[in-house]
């Protein structure tokens, strides 16, 4: 039973990180239909910026409190997302280029960020401070370490905010309207450029925060972006792109399959690497819309 509860906390924390990456994809895809694989590298950049702000490893003058790092990283991610939309995506949309062009350009952005991170922060993994350390603790019957509980709490906070934004605000409804029909939304007076810019800024901020949250567990390193991008995309496919809560559901399912499978399935542990891809292929073949469908009738 102890094993089960320990793993429950561990898998939930990992699932929350995947869910955040899926949410970063989702907030961009919904209004723009553009899949942005650079979110993984944005997460890595967020982790590096966090290390730079929190420790003396990068810039000796800084050693700021974690909560200030959270704000700085979120603002950095938003700026990166906004800048990317402004410089790389908007010109393509203005010229009427197909969505595939933007996706390919964003793959270029991915490479630029990965190589940029390497040049700026080096190739060695950097330890990322955890605000509450790594004390083993119990919350109710659940044993874990403080960083895992922080990830879970912060993720639920982000998802609650996103859900409230989409469900309770005019801007959220504008996002939904653009997602359903761009032309009709434009005719209704919704500023498509503003929605696109906000979507990329929000995606950047969420990805960067995900990187900051996971980096105490994994360290900040230049190869962390691609696995996060893959895990986040798989979570998105599982949960579906239609609803915010689908991203979290997909992340949790993916992490549970990975970790509970590694623990109890009678397969060599190296094979667990294939679990996300099996899920990805399975969902794309048999349920391409994901588990949760978009609430198309609401708007």
């Amino acid at each position: 039973m102890e094993d089960f509860l320990e793993l429950l906390v561990s898998a939930t924390a990992s699932g929350c990180v995947y869910g955040l990456l899926a949410l970063a994809y989702l907030v961009i895809i919904r209004p723009t239909s553009i899949i942005n694989f650079a979110v993984g590298e944005w997460a890595a950049s967020g982790a590096f910026v966090g290390v730079a702000v929190l420790s003396t490893l990068v810039w000796p003058a800084l050693e700021w409190p974690w909560w200030s790092a959270l704000l700085i990283v979120a603002a950095f991610g938003a700026l990166v997302g906004y800048g990317t939309e402004l410089l790389c995506v908007r010109p393509l949309v203005a010229r009427g280029a197909p969505e595939l062009s933007a996706i390919l350009v964003l793959l270029g952005v991915l490479v630029i960020f990965r190589e940029g991170n390497t040049l700026l922060f080096g190739a060695s993994p950097l330890p990322s401070p955890a605000p509450f350390g790594f004390r083993r603790m119990l919350i109710g019957p659940f044993p874990g370490v403080s960083q895992q509980f922080l990830i879970i709490g912060a993720t639920f906070g982000v998802f609650l905010s996103a859900w409230l934004f989409f469900e309770r605000t005019v801007w959220g409804r504008a996002f939904e309207a653009v997602a359903l029909n761009r032309k009709a939304a434009a005719l209704m007076g919704i500023d498509l450029r503003m929605v696109g810019a906000l979507a990329f800024a929000a995606g950047g901020a969420i990805a960067a925060v995900a990187g900051l949250l996971v980096s105490p567990l994994t360290s900040a390193h230049f190869l962390m972006g691609l696995p996060l991008a893959t895990q986040g995309f798989t979570a998105l496919v599982i949960g579906g792109i239609g609803r915010v809560e689908g991203a979290l559901l997909g992340g949790l399912i993916l992490a549970f399959v990975e970790q509970f499978g590694a623990r109890w399935l009678p397969v060599p542990s190296g094979m667990t690497l294939a679990f996300p891809f099996v899920l990805l292929i399975g969902f794309l073949l048999f349920r391409p819309t994901g588990l949760l469908r978009a609430p198309e009738t609401r708007v």
């Binding site: 094993d3 320990e6 793993l7 561990s10 898998a11 924390a13 990992s14 990180v17 996971v214 567990l217 994994t218 190869l223 962390m224 691609l226 696995p227 996060l228 893959t230 895990q231 992490a255 970790q259 509970f260 590694a262 623990r263 060599p268 542990s269 190296g270 667990t272 690497l273």
Partner: peptide, 16 residues
């Protein structure tokens, strides 16, 4: 036990 690159936790491996 193999901890694949890109993992976010090795708890399952170490439990085994």
């Amino acid at each position: 036990e193999v901890i694949p690159q890109g993992s976010t936790s090795a708890v399952a491996n170490l439990q085994k």
